[in-house]
Amino acid sequence: MSAILQVEGVSMKFGALLANKDVSFDVEEGAIVGLIGPNGAGKTTLFNCVAGFYKPSAGSIRFRGEEIAGLPSYKVARKGLARTFQVVRPLKEMSVFENILVGAYLGHPDNKHAREVAEECLETCFLQDWRDWPAGDMTIGNKKRLEVARALATSPRMILLDEAVAGLTSTEVREMVEVIKRLKANGLTVLMVEHIMEAIMPIADKIVVLASGEKIAEGAPKDIVRDPKVITAYLGKKYAEAMDKGAGA
């Protein structure tokens, strides 16, 4: 698999605070890559650099061979790299369908096609029953899936999910995992920042672990859970034991 996104030596400073230090990794086309790490590890900062919300202080970010570091976010989106927000941001006074439609207009300027695409995304993300509902008035689970549907409607090559399952009930987590699997089945590449290991470990092809702004490990989920550095910094012994038991059973 060739890399669709290449992050190379990215550092991000806020004044004296070094949020990311020399982070490098690749995201392979068609893969689901998870970005994990303890609070304050710099996951969201890195994520925002990729999405064009921050300009990294150093390093390069290449998407499909093109440098995108420092591009404004709307240009990043136009190149086929869509994102969701950790704290959901529905366009409140617009209906669920209209929210998705705004995304769909990116790849389909004409009304008819945009509406068709929006209807498809509505179904992919299990939102068809909420079509004409005001987007601000839904449960958090629906709002999180709306984030994904809206990003998906832009017809991206790759989608960035920022804690898409955080704060959801177990049913909602299952629905979201199903949505993410559907994205992969449609040929999309997914980079997701996540805290819920149960959600990410079974579906990720690769995990990148950050701690204190630096990459401390990268590899397949089964190797990551046994990596002593990751266990010390983030997962803790209990998790590794539980995973071992799970694997043994």
Binding site: A77, L91, G103, N111, A114
Partner: peptide
Amino acid sequence: ERSRFGYYLRAVREGQETAESLGVNS
């Protein structure tokens, strides 16, 4: 009101960063 531009305009009102994340030059 019924065009792409109208939806973009309302999207910018409801959330500028969200609109930008969807490719809208706010």
